[in-house]
Amino acid sequence: MAKVRPRVRVPKKASAGDVITIKTLISHPMESGQRKDRKTGELIPRKIINHFTASFNGEVVFDAAIEPAVSANPYFSFAMVVPESGTVAFKWVDDDGSIYTEEKSITVE
């Protein structure tokens, strides 16, 4: 099984009130539950990232409920306004209950 690895791009520095674009990607096969195993003909069970949340200093900025129709290695980008220095926390929830997280800090100068 390929290793699940989150990658996010957040600017390190910003001015207060700046609008930044955050890009996130997590390597994950997003097995849809529709595919069949070529050898056995059996359905490969669904295993996807079903939820993604980004929050800044504990406040939710962007939240996505995800269905199997989102591509493998799910990518999301969205905008955020930076009110102060702080940390953006990202959280991905897997069907199997695993939670993958990543954090990036932004310094307001």
């Binding site: 609008v19 800044f56 900025v61 962007f62 996505a64 129709a69 591509s71 980008s77 955020m80």
Partner: peptide, 30 residues
């Protein structure tokens, strides 16, 4: 929503107060 997929649902985005422009980009399966 993708009308012609086996399951129509794709994703639902929810925006917080700190989201200035209510926009999102992703990649989907059709």
């Amino acid at each position: 929503v993708a009308d012609g997929n086996p399951n129509p649902g794709v994703a639902t985005f929810e925006f917080g107060r700190l989201c200035p422009s209510r926009s999102a980009a992703t990649r989907i399966r059709l």
